[in-house]
Nucleic acid binder design. Sequence first.
DNA 1: GATGATTTGTACGTATGTATA
DNA 2: ATATACATACGTACAAATCAT
Lengths: 243, 243
Amino acid sequence: MPMPLATNGTKDDAVKRTVQPVPTSAPTLSEAIRLSLADDITSGRLPPGTEVDEQSVGERFGASRTPVREALRQLASAGLVSLEPRRGARVAMLTVDRLSEMFEVMAETEALCARLATNRMTGAERVALRALHQKSREAVAGRHVHRYDEHNKDFHLAIYAGTHNAFLAEHAAALRLRLSPFRRAQFQGADRLSQSFEEHTILLQQMLRGDGEEASRIMRAHMLTAGAEYLNVSPREQGSSAS
Amino acid sequence: MPMPLATNGTKDDAVKRTVQPVPTSAPTLSEAIRLSLADDITSGRLPPGTEVDEQSVGERFGASRTPVREALRQLASAGLVSLEPRRGARVAMLTVDRLSEMFEVMAETEALCARLATNRMTGAERVALRALHQKSREAVAGRHVHRYDEHNKDFHLAIYAGTHNAFLAEHAAALRLRLSPFRRAQFQGADRLSQSFEEHTILLQQMLRGDGEEASRIMRAHMLTAGAEYLNVSPREQGSSAS
DNA sequence: GATGATTTGTACGTATGTATA
DNA sequence: ATATACATACGTACAAATCAT
């Protein structure tokens, strides 16, 4: 005896293709929702602290709560949202202490990548890295903050890949993603754009020279500078915790 | 018109408390299942490659498939199981290449921890670390492999904590957990027990002397030795991939 | 502090996709 | 190659917990 279920089977077929032009191979709905929410969070459209309730997200996607739940669990594991049992989900909000801890790990991880990449990059990879740096130069000259942000990301990702350790590269990229909601104002301060570029320049120089240890030190300093910049710019917008 | 639902509301109430003596605060059923499965995997009761289907796990816990699904998603994010859409879950099975990548990251992460801990541990922490090392000595003397395994873990966890960077400590512990299914035979080979202990001895010595760089190098070598040991002992039990 | 509204946690049913005979 | 079997993906229902009043 089939109960009169709500209109089903036609609605979501129509909606599924309307949701978002998720270009990646996302065969499942929960995956699509996850990617879309992750983008909303890392882009800043959903700032830290925002409550995310399953129902409304589901409605936004024309989906039921089930795939939304799964997406939120995934995002929680990735550190982008925090879950408390029976209290719902919110975009991850970190204390200043926690954030500086994460920046330290990020800096050390990138330093490691720089060291390994210096020793392991192929000739083609070195050429490509230099080309990326050139693109950055143009963005700096034109004061294109957003474009520099993109090139900067590509530059760092290229170094991750240069380690020839895919696990490490994924690790570093995940960490970068997780911190991205807290780096919005990264290149706002003063002349941070050209400063960052100059740091890249000497980093690249040492990497091409083959001095991995020095490259590692430069990268660590580079990342710590960026982290400190953020923590100084807006230390009060995050959660509690003194000092 | 309430359809004749299967016996419900009484069954799981009774079962919930019978599941497992999960001592931690696991208010939700899916959390309990997750912890139990994680233990099954890291302990080796569910070896890599084992298929895990929602139905049977649910029956084992007296739960429906819903919380099992969530537990599996969590475990997948932690890297303990692998999921393929509509094809189910299995305990993560890594290629030799992947595994050696992970061992490298583990070695570098531990090396970082050793360096930071050398500079940051309090007096009390140094005393405690030395005490842990003493306990290990006794386990080595008595050839108590399992007990040494425990002390070894505590020793390393103490170093993580000594960094005074909780995020890094969690990171390192998560990595250790994730690799644990692949380190079962860790202290089986020859005289690996006392070799490990000796390496700890000189590591501890340098840490107490305050030479963080040297401690870092020793730790890296220590971990790479352990990794290579495993890869040599049973390189063929893992997935494909040559070299 | 008690009550009602909202939201999560879990159970269960159906559809779809994958693998197998 | 077609069909069958099976496990997952998603939708829906209900109960319990949280919060708002």
